[in-house]
Design a protein around this nucleic acid. Structure first.
Length: 278
DNA sequence: CATATGTCCTGAGAGC
DNA sequence: TGCTCTCAGGACATAT
């Protein structure tokens, strides 16, 4: 489940494509149901071929190639997507290929479950699909005040609220649990019960955990799906304090077993001693 | 508007 | 051992 740290790692891994021109753009032959490609492949290629890549950005949990035509190519990995410049984990889940000019390796989109997408959007389309009414401020750029202002009157539990991309972009299920543990905040605490000091704690923990996870190049869970652009595993899974650690001892208090609960149909992990309910 | 639920997809792992 | 079943969760559609 690539979240902000994993997608940022993918982005950094493909910065070498900046300056290259797109020679061809097409779905990979794949026996599975095709992933979403927009516009349809023929038109996609028509608009992409011959254009030069001028920047590689991240927008929430997506990798974005900016083209000299002002169009953008958006890779959205969702659960199991990868943006690669070498050695895919296997051939059968390769979904899309961008052939590039010069010495630059081709850019591949690989996706085991195929829930992700590859899109080419005009500036208008980009605004409609990924503009500020669809996505909140980036999790690495948001201030403590903005975070508080956007959530403080909600009556929902804080953990699922942090997953709402219109509020804040980039946080997913894994890092929501991790950041709340660092903030010593119970995941079921109602947003409208948090003090200003508590919001500052949550904000500081958010920055901390994302920056640390980026340093370790993201989390590769036991299914091994997530890889960086060179098909290497991340390292942050070894530093998780709660995620996927049900029944194991809390690394902070050294005495309490981590609990797993379900909120909004998603698994939440927390330490009942370090993250008090009130 | 806010909030809740169902859906897509594949493969790992559980249970019998 | 081999089969069937559940589950993982990002984003979006639809319902309340």
């Amino acid at each position: 489940m690539p979240e902000l740290p994993e997608v940022e790692t993918m982005r950094r891994g493909v910065l070498g494509v900046i300056g290259a021109a797109i020679l061809d753009a097409h779905p990979a032959t794949c026996s599975y149901r095709p992933i979403a490609v927009y516009p349809a492949p023929r038109l996609f290629a028509q608009r992409a071929v011959g254009r030069r890549i001028v920047a590689v950005d991240r927008v929430g949990k997506r990798v974005v190639l900016r083209l000299d035509s002002n169009d953008a190519v958006i890779f959205e990995p969702r659960m199991t997507g990868l943006v690669l410049i070498a050695n895919p984990p296997n051939q059968e889940h390769l979904r899309f290929r961008l052939q590039l000019s010069g010495d630059v390796a081709d850019l591949w989109y690989w996706d085991r479950r195929g829930l992700g997408s590859v899109r080419l959007l005009s500036p208008d389309e980009f605004q409609n699909a990924l503009g500020p009414h669809k996505l909140g401020p980036d999790a690495l750029a948001i201030t403590a005040g903005e975070l508080q202002a956007r959530l403080q009157y909600r009556r929902t539990p804080i953990k699922p609220a942090l997953l709402d991309q219109r509020i804040i972009a980039g946080v997913g299920n894994l890092y929501a649990s991790e950041l709340l543990h660092r903030a010593k905040m119970h995941p079921a605490r109602s947003c409208d019960s948090l003090s200003r000091a508590a919001w500052r704690r949550v904000h500081a923990a958010l920055q901390e955990v994302l920056e640390e996870a980026i340093r370790y190049e993201g989390s590769t869970l036991s299914d091994g799906t997530y890889r960086n652009a060179l098909n290497e595993a991340g390292g942050f899974q070894n530093h998780h304090r709660v995620y996927d650690r049900e029944g194991q001892t809390c690394r902070t208090c050294q005495r309490t077993a981590i609990l797993r609960i379900v909120q909004a149909q998603r698994a939440t992990f927390y330490c009942p001693r370090c993250q008090k309910a009130s």
